[in-house]
């Protein structure tokens, strides 16, 4: 409503403005017709038209999820065997039942909380080390020349391959699991930070120098904010890999944790709990990625596209 009336008032102003009044035989100005008064219904209609894409995506997304649940239900209830065997796969209702049971049980919560804590420690540690390291390696050639070869050799080793070594390296089981989680997220964060540093526009650095900025200020005011979008890409990817590594580590060497819960359910023939564990991992992964994205939007208000 507000926007509409404002635009209308401006239109009238320019129409009577002095610069348009000056007409010559060669120049003819065009008077714009007066618009109709704005109405709430029209405003709503426009809002719907402008947000149609978003509404459509939400609607289709909901239908798609419902269809997935329905297919799952049909396949398991009818115990379909068609190359893949659904005979022992729990149905959605069985999983729901298992969820309500788990909700009354504190051990399930302990599993979830422990996994989240491991992610928090491992991932935070990785971010706190990889981001500054990437910034320094991107800024100072010597640091890059010394550290990059080592990083390149270590990077292709999957975090899971570190499990035996981690058990030898760290005194407790908990520490080695956090270490595996740390390794999983470390390299994506480092590589993306380095990439961001390599893309910093040198003209912006020169602009800062012309305004009297010295090395430390240039680092803080130019290199760091310029790399932030890539750092956040690294954090998002790193968070995903952190969960992958954590679950693997928990399945192999764990006591407690949602990965351990899922594996234990298989050993104890609690098939519904397997699916519950898997869905729980999915939701936790989704939530932590959303958290990072939200943080990114908060930290980079200029980066709205």
């Amino acid at each position: 409503m507000k926007v509409e009336t404002f635009a209308l008032r401006r239109e009238q102003q320019t129409a009577t403005g002095p610069e348009i009044g000056a007409e010559t035989s060669h120049v003819r100005t065009v008077q714009s017709p007066a618009g109709a008064p704005p109405q709430l219904a029209a405003y709503l209609r426009r809002w719907l038209a402008l947000n149609r894409r978003g509404l459509r995506a939400v609607l289709i997304g909901a239908i798609s999820l419902a269809l997935f649940l329905l297919a799952w239900h049909l396949l398991t209830e009818n115990r379909v065997v068609f190359f893949i065997r659904f005979t022992n796969v729990p149905s959605p209702s069985a999983v729901y039942e298992s969820l309500t049971r788990a909700m009354q049980d504190s051990t399930f919560f302990t599993h979830v909380v422990l996994s989240c804590r491991r992610i928090l420690f491992g991932f935070s540690l990785a971010a706190l080390i990889a981001v500054p390291l990437g910034l320094v390696m991107g800024r100072f050639r010597v640091a890059h020349e010394i550290l990059f070869p080592v990083m390149e050799v270590l990077r292709p080793i999957p975090a899971i391959a570190w499990v035996p070594m981690a058990i030898m390296l760290w005194p407790t089981n908990e520490q080695s699991i956090i270490y595996i989680t740390f390794l999983g997220s470390f390299f994506p964060i480092l590589v993306n930070t380095l990439h961001g540093m390599s893309l910093v526009d040198p003209v912006l650095v020169r602009a800062a120098q012309c305004l009297g900025a010295r090395e430390v200020s240039i680092f803080r005011e130019v290199y760091f904010p310029a790399s932030l979008p890539h750092i956040f890409t690294g954090l998002t990817v790193g968070m995903g890999v952190a969960w992958v590594s954590l679950i693997a580590a928990e399945m192999i060497s764990g006591q407690f944790g949602i990965g351990y819960f899922t594996w234990e359910a298989y050993s104890l023939v609690q098939y519904a709990d397997i699916a519950l564990g898997m869905i729980c991992i999915g939701v936790l992964g989704l939530g932590s990625s959303a958290l990072i994205r939200g943080l990114g939007r908060l930290v980079m208000p200029w980066n709205r596209t």
Partner: peptide
Amino acid sequence: PGADRGMVFQQYSLFPWKTVKGNVEF
């Protein structure tokens, strides 16, 4: 380079992460 010689670039080179005022205050 130094602040006694102000420079204006063809590509504007404003800091995208600073507001207009933030750029001027830099």
